[in-house]
Design a protein around this nucleic acid. Structure first.
Length: 683
DNA sequence: GTTGTGCATGTCGAC
DNA sequence: TCGACATGCACAACG
């Protein structure tokens, strides 16, 4: 066991502690005791001390729950995770998935004798499967689908081993390590598959109940380590029922290597959550925006669908591939007026905060490092306020970040985790352009608000305004034309305009009850943004003007003169990637001849003479005649000006009469109309 | 006077 | 009915 960080924040600075051979369990969070400080963070229940019983088995000294690697091949557990996650060396399955009650030990394993606890790490977290038999059917259904899709997953199961039966009358507890969200879910899927052999087929049940999944994925550590089995997909959904829609094929799996992507499940409207559909095989599934439900849909604390991260499979794949890391979407939230206001407090959904952020016991909270998709690291204060015998979690100090991302009320902020490393990363989606009701309608639905009641909030075959992943949104938001081009190329971040590209989906989804959804949207939108935050809103015309202004401003952006681009090849397209932010280039004026030929004019910073340039010329912020490499005659300030004075005055008058931004881009036709004739410009 | 902080309260959705 | 949460509001700190 290598050095690990103590879970106690007061002690965690020392990462070379020895560790007691015990396990702590708290709300599904496992941790060791630190030998130095003698404790773990918070009031962990000193409950589980697992002992190696026989090959593949471990048993808690206290609660007598048993753990098995599943394949029974050996007791050789492969350590996978920083916080002690293990997997069987033979089958790579996580033993935590096979935890069962002592009295549920299947026949054939013989008597168990306790031994001294070994040093094997087996953190677990609670994953209580409903015991009414419902889960059995659901899991069976899941298994069928999985079997149909990837029979190889089931292969190890069909050796006849009676390991764990989810169909047993008594419920069992599946415990997964807090730090192994992804792994756990991935494995959970496999468990389901394995269980299929031993459960009664029940075709009538098609739902995978996720409400009784682990109580919490919280870990009292801001490091948020996430275990990822080697060789597996980059994207690891943090949800156990993601076993269905987020079931991640191992990259080593042939089907994956052949380019087969994980197929999101298309659930039908349902209150219970995930519905598994045979439609999952449709090739278009990867394009769908999936509201990936939380694994820890744990009873009343389970996350509301509105917070489920919505990300298309394709985006995930691209994100994962591009970043060469594992993306774990955690949750998202529509920014309220309060969130986006100047107070700088972002109210966090309680369930999300408790599930994915470090556990805090003091109101003061802890600093939380969150990286934006540009790589900039922000430190927020993650804290809570007592609130009606409950807690209200907030992130403080988010104003600079929100401003940096140019977010407003109504935009959606997303939290994800990047692994390895467990870094928290935040992205965003911009809200649609105000005034476009259809956009707004779809947006509201996309954001999981209104319409969710009839969309189930599970999967929405809908577009989003900008695609998920603020990763790409940030790329676009960078306003670096090159990055922006990349973003466009990837067809992810579409911001406003791109919204229309998949609009039909939204229409289709809403056609059942457009008015209802519209009303609901409006209602929700009103609430989200708040009547008192109208100052944060703007009229559609204003928004349009702002958008146009910004778009125009983009034409002025130039790569920093000192910046050296990195050439990035994506899908056979080469893009220049700059580390340095773009700079504003010199403003120019475009004109057009009657023939349609366009011209670009720039004014020398030294002599103030106007020079004609190629239309594709990009000028640095400071430009003089000597920089006029396109015209050997007029590359000096001593050269005569091309434009006659009258036309020049017209040109400048037009510029003054227009908005500050528009002066940069005088419509050529307008200019020509004002100047009257082609003779306005002399060559 | 402005801004920040901490808590209270009303609304609304989920159960 | 209850919990979550958006936001109001009183008070403190600060310039």
């Amino acid at each position: 066991m290598g050095p690990r960080i103590c879970m106690n924040p007061k002690c965690r600075t020392a990462n070379t502690h020895e560790w007691k051979k015990g396990w702590l369990l708290r709300s599904g969070v496992c941790a060791d005791l630190c030998y130095d400080c003698g404790s773990a963070y918070e009031n962990f229940i000193f409950c589980n001390t697992f002992h190696l019983e026989e090959p593949g088995w471990r048993e808690c000294n206290f609660c007598s729950k048993r753990l098995h690697c599943g394949c029974r091949a050996s007791n050789s557990f492969l350590e996978l995770l920083d916080y002690g996650g293990v997997g069987c060396r033979s089958c790579a399955m996580s033993p935590r998935l096979h935890l069962i009650q002592r009295d549920e030990i299947p026949n054939g394993f013989g008597a168990l004798t306790k031994k001294d606890s070994d040093d094997t790490q087996t953190p677990i977290f609670e994953n209580r499967v409903v015991g009414d038999g419902t889960a059995e059917g659901k899991l069976t259904q899941l298994c069928r689908i999985m079997e149909a899709n990837e029979p190889s997953f089931l292969a190890p199961f069909q050796r006849g081993d009676t390991i764990v039966s989810l169909g047993q009358e008594k419920r069992e507890e599946l415990r997964l390590p807090f730090g192994e969200v992804g792994t756990g879910f991935s494995s959970a899927t496999k468990l389901s598959s394995r269980s299929s052999k031993f459960t009664k087929p029940d075709g009538s049940r098609s739902m995978l109940d996720v409400r009784d999944m682990p109580e919490s994925l919280a870990q009292p550590s801001s490091s948020m380590s996430l275990g990822v089995p080697a060789g597996c997909s980059n994207f690891v959904p943090p949800f156990s029922n993601g076993a269905a829609d987020g079931r991640e094929p191992c990259k080593a799996h042939p089907s994956f290597q052949q380019g087969q992507r994980s197929r999101p499940i298309l659930p039908k409207p349902s209150k219970t959550g995930l519905t598994i559909s045979s439609e999952t095989k449709k090739s278009t599934a990867s394009q769908l925006r999936i509201a990936r439900p939380p694994a820890e849909g744990r009873g009343k604390n389970h996350l509301l669908p509105r917070y489920w991260p919505r990300i298309t499979d394709q985006e995930l794949q691209q994100l994962s591939g591009d970043l060469n890391s594992t993306i774990v979407p955690l949750f998202e939230k529509i920014l309220s007026a309060s969130d986006a206001g100047r107070i700088g407090r972002l109210v966090l959904p309680k369930a999300c905060a408790e599930a994915y952020f470090p556990h805090i016991s003091q109101s003061e909270g802890v600093p939380l490092r969150v990286q934006d998709v540009k790589g900039k690291e922000w430190v927020f204060q993650f804290r809570f306020w007592p609130n009606n015998n409950s807690r209200m979690y907030v992130l403080e100090g988010v104003t600079p970040c929100i401003q940096s991302m140019q977010l407003r009320a109504g935009d959606t902020i997303t939290f994800s985790r990047i692994d390895p490393g467990g870094k928290l990363v935040m992205g965003f989606r911009k809200a649609p352009i105000p005034g476009d009701m259809q956009d707004a309608q779809t947006s509201a639905i996309t954001n999981g608000c209104p319409g969710e009641s009839f969309l189930s909030g599970v999967t929405e075959n809908l577009p989003t305004v900008s695609g998920y992943s603020g990763h790409f949104q940030m790329l676009k938001g960078s306003k670096d034309p090159h990055i922006d081009a990349l973003s466009e190329h990837l067809s992810l971040a579409e911001g406003g305009n791109g919204w229309h590209k998949s609009e039909n989906h939204g229409q289709k989804t809403n056609e059942d009850s457009p008015q209802k959804s519209l009303l609901g949207m409006e209602k929700k939108r009103t609430r989200n943004i708040g009547s008192k935050s109208k100052r944060l809103l703007m009229h559609s015309e204003e928004a349009m003007e702002l958008r146009l202004t910004w778009e125009e401003a983009q034409d002025l952006l130039r790569p920093s003169p000192s910046a050296q681009p990195n050439i990035v090849t994506i899908e056979d397209h080469e893009f220049e990637e700059y580390d340095e932010p773009p700079v504003f280039g010199k403003r120019t004026v475009f004109t057009a001849r009657p023939s349609g030929e366009q011209e670009q004019w720039a004014q020398c910073d030294d002599c103030s003479k106007w020079r004609k340039l190629p239309t594709d010329a990009l000028l640095p912020p400071k430009w003089t005649c000597s920089d006029n490499v396109w015209d050997s005659i007029r590359c000096s300030c001593s050269a005569a000006e091309e434009m006659i004075q009258k036309d020049l005055e017209n040109l400048l008058r037009v510029g003054r009469g227009m908005s500050q931004a528009s002066v940069f881009l005088i419509p050529a036709q307008v200019l020509y109309a004002m100047t009257g004739s082609e003779d306005s410009f002399k060559n």
